[in-house]
Amino acid sequence: MVSIAVPVLSVVAALGLWELISQTGVISQRDLPAMSTTVQALWDMVQTGTFWKALGETVRGWAIGLGLAAALAVPIGVALGSSDFAASAFRVPIEFLRPIPSAALIPLLFLTLGTTLKSEIFLATFGAFWPLLVQTMYGVRDIDPVAVDTARSFQLTRNERLFRVTVPSALPYIMTGVRISSTVALILAFTAELFMGTPGLGQRLNYVETFGLNDQIYALALATGFLGVAIHFAVSAVERRVLRWHPSQRKTSTT
């Protein structure tokens, strides 16, 4: 019981502090709407269809972006990771393309593909592709050579080795990559909506920001945060389930 009391109290205290700061005018109510006001605005928003439609659109962008990135990055990652030659050959291009912030591509996409779902997906996929590719390559390269030798001594074919030894061994890394890529995909989907106006929560934020509706700005930000947390939890849960068997299920807080 003690273990859950502390975090709950901590959240309650923070919310209380927010209310206090705003109500007493330490920060003006116009700049920082009170917690109660924001929650009210959020509650109102949640009743509307437009909110849920926008939420669905953002989730759609995230899901397709992540899915496409995974469909591309995992096979390519396995291929590159298994071949020392291929990994070396493509090392330089990957090292140069990887650090390009996908955010920098927004104007390009805006001017070429326009404010369509395609732009959003392209952006999300491009950004989510790299972490997953790199993690998959690490995972495949990090395979215990004893496991590989064992498989070969049992005369497993190349494909059998791939699916029964390589991929399962690399799975923890791949799942870490999925977790990271999921975060990136969400950020980019939202960014595309905010900056380009593709439909979704980001676009709603842009809209209310243009009209200076502070209450709703805060409410939308709050809601987006919750969406982020929900997605993070969901992906982490999937990760835990998939890796149930793996001894490396350490408890860490990183990403």
Partner: peptide
């Protein structure tokens, strides 16, 4: 205990897509 108290906040702020806070940063 410090971790236990801080974790809900950390989990929230690291999960929120940063662009969602751009307008707020300008307002504040």
């Amino acid at each position: 205990i410090g971790r236990s108290a801080a974790m809900p906040h950390i989990e929230y702020w690291r999960a929120i897509p940063p662009p969602a806070l751009l307008p707020i940063s300008i307002i504040l």
